[in-house]
């Protein structure tokens, strides 16, 4: 039983993953809702965690695994308005998930039911990793870099040093390189504008498929900033933090992408 103040937030989260994964289970317990799924080619992994404080009301008195088809849940979420409140409920036996939307002024109520699926999902264990480089930058900037470089090449090499982070690609038509300096560049409308904030233990340079990175940038509407976690011999983690309507941190959406290696 979970009440979310703005249905639009859940829609944004689902829209950010629905083109990457077909089906997934929502694992619910008393602390929140967790999802983990790989794309069909097993190159990337998506996880999200929606903490209890994302919801106005939240209760889950026993652990549940709800098998969801992503296209179907996206269709239902599209039926609500983004500032509707949304109540999610399951029945007993657990074979449907019900969605009750209520308009902000309370003049319209709508209810939809999603048939749940029996999914045998394998859970992967994601180890706690000490990353060599953690890069924080504006979502819009990361999105632009990925889209720009994808017009030239298929993969992008991210190279992080103490002073800057460089994104580069090579294609048939030529090459492209974008470099962002470490640190705050200036203030705009009382807000600091970062080139990139870099925390570094050791410089790293790794290559990734741009097609997947572009999928990940669909989460850009969830947060101002994106955090890239990089290390040798581990997948890239692209993290978007999720905030509730009181601007408190209330979960995350994380994408993991396996690197490309030169043979």
């Amino acid at each position: 039983n979970a009440l979310i103040k703005q249905a639009g937030l859940l829609k944004k989260i689902i829209d950010a993953i629905k083109d990457l994964i077909d089906e997934a289970t929502l694992d619910c317990d008393n602390d929140g809702i967790y999802l983990q799924a790989m794309d069909s080619s097993h190159v990337s992994l998506v996880t999200f965690y929606l903490k209890k404080n994302l919801f106005e009301k939240y209760s889950c008195n026993r652990n549940l695994s709800l098998g969801i088809n992503m296209t179907s849940i996206a269709k239902i979420l599209k039926c609500g308005m983004s500032d509707d409140t949304l109540l999610l409920e399951t029945n007993n036996p657990i074979d449907i998930l019900s969605f009750k939307f209520e308009s902000r002024r309370g003049h319209k109520l709508s209810q939809f039911q999603l048939r749940l699926m029996n999914l045998e999902m394998e859970r992967l264990s994601i180890p706690d990793t000490e990353y060599s480089c953690i890069i924080e930058m504006m979502c819009s900037e990361f999105s632009k870099v990925c889209h720009d470089l994808a017009t030239i090449g298929d993969s992008m090499t991210i190279t992080c040093t103490k002073k800057n982070v460089t994104f580069d690609t090579t294609g048939d038509l030529g090459t492209g390189i974008v470099s962002l300096k470490q640190g705050v560049v200036g203030s705009e409308n009382d807000e600091n504008v970062y080139a990139a904030s870099i925390k570094i233990v050791k410089p790293v340079s790794l290559s990734f498929s741009l097609r997947y990175l572009i999928y990940f940038t669909k989460a850009s509407s969830l947060s101002n900033k994106v955090i890239l976690h990089m290390g040798e011999e581990v997948p890239l983690m692209v993290e978007y933090k999720i905030f509730n309507t009181y601007e408190e941190e209330a979960g995350y959406l994380r994408y993991f992408l396996a690197p490309k290696v030169n043979e």
Partner: peptide
């Protein structure tokens, strides 16, 4: 030549 690695090469089943 570049080869794409896969997630199960890094994360094991629980």
């Amino acid at each position: 030549k570049e080869t794409q690695q896969e997630i199960p090469e890094f994360f094991t089943k629980m």
